[in-house]
Design a protein around this nucleic acid. Sequence first.
DNA 1: GACCTGATAATGTCATGACAACTAGCCAAA
DNA 2: TTTGGCTAGTTGTCATGACATTATCAGGTC
Lengths: 254, 254
Amino acid sequence: MSAQEENVLPMGMFMDLERSGPIPLYFQVSQRIEKAILSGELPAGSRLENEVALGQRLGLSRPTVRRAIQEIVDKGLLVRRRGIGTQVVHGQVTRRVELTSLYDDLTNTHKVPSTHLLTLESQPADAKTAERLGVDEGSPTLHLRRVRLADDVPVAVMENWLPAEFIGIEPTDLVAHGLYQVLRSRGVTMRVARQHIGARKSTAEESALLEIEKSSALLTMDRTAFDNSGRAVEFGQHCYRPDLYSFEVTLVEK
Amino acid sequence: MSAQEENVLPMGMFMDLERSGPIPLYFQVSQRIEKAILSGELPAGSRLENEVALGQRLGLSRPTVRRAIQEIVDKGLLVRRRGIGTQVVHGQVTRRVELTSLYDDLTNTHKVPSTHLLTLESQPADAKTAERLGVDEGSPTLHLRRVRLADDVPVAVMENWLPAEFIGIEPTDLVAHGLYQVLRSRGVTMRVARQHIGARKSTAEESALLEIEKSSALLTMDRTAFDNSGRAVEFGQHCYRPDLYSFEVTLVEK
DNA sequence: GACCTGATAATGTCATGACAACTAGCCAAA
DNA sequence: TTTGGCTAGTTGTCATGACATTATCAGGTC
């Protein structure tokens, strides 16, 4: 039946490693392997060269090779089995879900994003917002509400609350860029996000904003994002037109 | 403002490591740290003892300690910063999303799952099913359709297709257990799953099955799951009552 | 007082070596 | 024929050591 092909990486591969540059060796290797999988050079089901041999051929230690392979395993493209080896997962390949904003997603899929700014104001935190952001109830927050369009078609209504330190953000920034771009330009680096994804019917206002019929089905997402010091930098309640947007998740069992 | 507390793990901790048992040392350590975070012993924002010191105190090498910490970073509970240290992420803690079935989820939340089996038949693969399962179009598959209930309330309608080797599965198995339980008992271990999450309106039949009004909003999930050899073992199209179920996702930027 | 500089401390990367655990395949014995 | 064990191959775990990179902070200089 499906023969376990013994495909091995071509000998000439991986020979152009930048050993003195700032890019880690394991990252250079993992990128090349991932590229080989996505390009079909390593077909589904084929076996990867074993760690020790690969390391010898590349002049790398086994831990470095292991880490490179592990990166791709975590993306769901490779599967390892002790005593057997490492194989390419079957099935159509999909890009990994990363910590991006809707604005980034649209840019990556070659659509033109734009924004209608509905609300931008300072607002005292209610109980829920205070809990999500980890601030005191009643303390000032930046409250914003936007409609995001892709190629001039409305895709999402997004409502967000940010800690007081961001109250200086200007409307022009939010119209020209995504929220995450604005935050990054202010020196914030998002590291962890916790999302809840659900569904509900649209309200009359949302139906009008998204140009859909009343009481349509909406895809909803609540998110709290944390920066690299572990503090909450954003809490948002978004709703999406389900015919134009969906979430993609890859799970890997350890 | 928020003082960076210098909390350090209590000295008596981690002293009961099972060095000869089958459980890896890094896993024992990561479990204890995670437990300390979830129990509040390590409060949000507190700093973890540095890797070298922690390793010395536990009698472990630095790679082992590093791996233990990395496990928790990947779960979104810790954040590392070079030159600074490792801190506990703020915000309410949530369990990690793992590769589980709805049946497992319900059991874990102390609800009583049950199943109505609507369809269980052998069916030739159509184009879409063939592509998702990686089999030839027209080749036999096992087709099943179920309603999943929690505490006797319908939560989801689930339609699944499995490769031909599973055609022997009995109705009694599926009524008494979840699909993933049945697969595991047949020696299959799921390793990777790719999911698409969306929303749409319910059909008349789905509304009746889920005991909701017609044209309600539904949360939908399409999934293809792969075993440890990288072969597809299941393709499913599920829809959930959004008032009773939602998805939780944690993203970590590398 | 503002700015530069160095010391300090912490995580990030990489190498080397060793042994354990698991799988598949071959081969011999019952 | 079937069962069992042995062997080779591969990933999993762990230790030790070294250096690089980055952030903080104290102190000196202009």
